[in-house]
């Protein structure tokens, strides 16, 4: 087992007996430290379920998940998920600052004052200076998303699992958030796994795109994105390597759709 995160022959199903539904079947992947990997796949194929299994919040029925060489049985320190339903994952009785501090509860080697300083620093890094004392329900959805990301990073995370974090934002904010995420990943040494249904976004952000098949899902193709960093919203999207990767992923997804339509 190499890589900061590995999945070997992972299988997961919901229910039992007649209502049993296989979601993941024989899935393998390995993420190297420092990598930015995008996961794309048809909607409902099991992407969220996969992230839950990778994070230790769900235990797979088959196979193993490993994080930093240890088998994952419960959410390990150093890994954090930014949930698809991020606004519900913020605790409404805590201020934004206290939400970030809540994420730091397992952080060691810092006293309360140091934790607070660190939390404020990260809130500023995600673009929220001056909103630390607000409650999540006092700020916009986009800001809530930033708080959730800040909380993830603050938990002394090395690996961020992001579940469709930009699905709900408008195009301009989306581009800004993409660049912010790339910037944060670099600045705070985060290995990132990004789930998205937007193929362009998947390619733009990633060092590698893993394409997931229809349910029960597994990795059906790996596409290495050979593009320099930092990425640029205009020139990166015009580069031949970007267009090639995008083409390959889109063709694959179209063939999966057609396969589904025929069967």
């Amino acid at each position: 087992m190499t890589g900061i995160l590995t999945a070997s022959d992972v299988g997961k199903s919901y229910g039992s007996g007649d209502t049993r539904m296989a979601i993941i079947d024989g899935l393998n992947l390995s993420i190297a430290k420092g990598e930015f990997v995008s996961l794309v796949g048809p909607s409902g194929c099991g992407k969220t379920t996969l992230l839950m299994c990778l994070s230790g919040l769900l235990s797979p029925n088959l196979g193993k998940v490993g994080f930093k060489g240890q088998v994952v049985t419960a959410p390990p320190i150093g890994l954090s998920v930014v949930f698809q339903d991020y606004s519900r994952s913020l605790l409404p009785w805590k201020t934004n600052l206290d939400n970030v501090l809540f994420g730091m509860r397992r952080v060691t080697g810092m006293d309360a004052a140091q934790k607070k300083a660190r939390a404020l620093e990260i809130l500023e890094a995600v673009g929220l200076p001056g909103f630390a004392g607000h409650y999540p329900w006092q700020v916009s959805g986009g800001m809530q998303q930033r708080v959730a990301i800040a909380r993830g990073i603050a938990s002394q995370s090395e690996l961020l699992l992001l579940d469709e974090p930009l699905a709900a934002v408008d195009a301009q904010t989306r581009a800004d958030m993409q660049d912010l995420l790339l910037d944060l990943a670099k600045r705070f040494d985060q290995t990132c796994v990004l789930v998205t249904h937007d193929v362009e976004e998947a390619v733009y952000m990633a060092d590698r795109v893993l394409v997931l098949g229809p349910r029960p899902t597994r990795v059906v193709r790996e596409i290495v994105v050979d593009l320099p960093k930092p990425r640029d919203q205009i020139s990166t999207r015009e580069a031949p390597a970007f267009l090639h990767a995008r083409h390959e992923v889109m063709e694959l997804i179209r063939s999966m759709r057609q396969g589904k339509a025929l069967s």
């Binding site: 839950m52 994070s55 919040l57 419960a74 959410p75 320190i77 954090s80 998920v81 949930f83 339903d85 519900r88 994952s89 605790l91 809540f102 994420g103 509860r105 397992r106 938990s155």
Partner: peptide, 15 residues
């Protein structure tokens, strides 16, 4: 209490 809130707590080590 919502599953997302519970998962958030568990993710940060609460049982």
């Amino acid at each position: 209490v919502g599953p997302v809130q519970l998962n958030t707590g568990r993710m940060f080590g609460l049982t």
